Simulated assay, not measured.
Amino acid sequence: MGLIRPGRQLARLTLDTLADLPDDVRSCLFWELDPVRRERALRAGEAKSEKEAWLSGVLLDWGSCGRVAYVDDRAVGFIVFAPAPYLPGAEAMPTAPISEDAVLLSTAFVLPEYAGGGIGRMLMQSVVRDLVKRGGIRAVEAFGDTRAPKRGGVEHTCCVLPADYLLAVGFKTQRPHPRFPRMRLEVKSAVTWRGEVEAALEKLLGAVRPGRAPQPAAGNRGAHREKLD
């Protein structure tokens, strides 16, 4: 692994790193709540607090469920994944449910000005590494949108990932649908990306190493950016 490049990091998704993301991301509950609870939270103006409560619950019950990419201390992208029971919004998708041996990749985002630089692929590989370490998970599945705009990378235009992005990072169609196909990436096959992705990681985000994320002290805005494999 190469030396860490200053200012370029991947961090676990925590309450602190969530706060670095755009407001519309922090208040989006498309996947995290069923439609009835989601509408109730939106009407009550509690979307952000519900998102934080959801993240806290998943971190306590299941563990790490996302990554945030930083360039020069700016959050430029993120990815979220979890077992299907933690993402009840997926039940409304026409190609649901996901397979029992898979976790759900709900969404990902890269700022448009950073699209096309490989950050989306780096985030996806960080998910695969996490699942390999956990063991017992055979695949990642996601719902793609065949009509979502995509210009060289993942863009935050809707709550469902572009199908083209999923295909680009190795997913294959599991259950076809004209608009929202369910797609699947076998964890075992994704491990073969390692050499390619590590080289790109050194070039783009810097080589980073794992560790468990302690709860940062209040006011310590830099401590939460834990370096990852």
Rank of each mutant, 00 (worst) to 15 (best):
L3V: 13
G7L: 11
R8S: 02
Q9N: 10
A11G: 04
R12D: 13
T17W: 07
A19Q: 04
L21Y: 00
L21K: 05
P22W: 07
D23N: 10
D23Q: 15
D24Y: 03
S27Q: 09
S27M: 10
C28H: 03
L29C: 03
F30A: 04
L33Y: 01
V36K: 06
R37N: 07
R40W: 03
L42A: 07
G45L: 11
A47R: 00
K48M: 13
K48F: 03
K48A: 14
E50I: 01
E50V: 00
K51N: 07
K51Y: 01
A53M: 05
A53H: 05
G57E: 13
G57M: 15
V58N: 06
V58L: 15
D61V: 05
G63A: 02
S64P: 12
R67N: 10
A69L: 11
Y70T: 08
D73N: 09
R74A: 10
R74S: 08
V76S: 04
F78V: 13
F81T: 03
F81W: 12
A82T: 01
A84E: 08
A84D: 07
P85H: 02
Y86P: 05
Y86D: 14
L87E: 00
P88V: 00
A92G: 11
P94T: 01
A102I: 08
A102D: 08
L104N: 14
S106F: 00
T107E: 15
A108D: 07
A108S: 09
F109A: 13
P112G: 11
E113A: 09
E113H: 10
A115W: 03
G117D: 10
G118V: 03
M122L: 15
M124P: 06
M124K: 08
M124A: 12
Q125T: 07
S126P: 10
V127I: 12
V127W: 09
V128L: 12
V128F: 07
L131T: 06
K133R: 15
K133L: 12
R134Y: 03
G135H: 05
G135R: 04
A148H: 02
P149M: 08
P149I: 05
K150Y: 10
G153T: 07
P162Q: 09
L166A: 09
A168E: 12
T173L: 14
Q174I: 09
R179N: 15
R179A: 15
M183G: 05
R184D: 08
S189H: 11
A190K: 11
A190N: 13
V191A: 07
G195T: 04
E196A: 14
L201A: 12
K203S: 12
L205E: 12
A207E: 15
V208M: 14
R209A: 14
P210L: 09
P214A: 11
A218F: 01
G219L: 11
H224Q: 14
L228K: 04
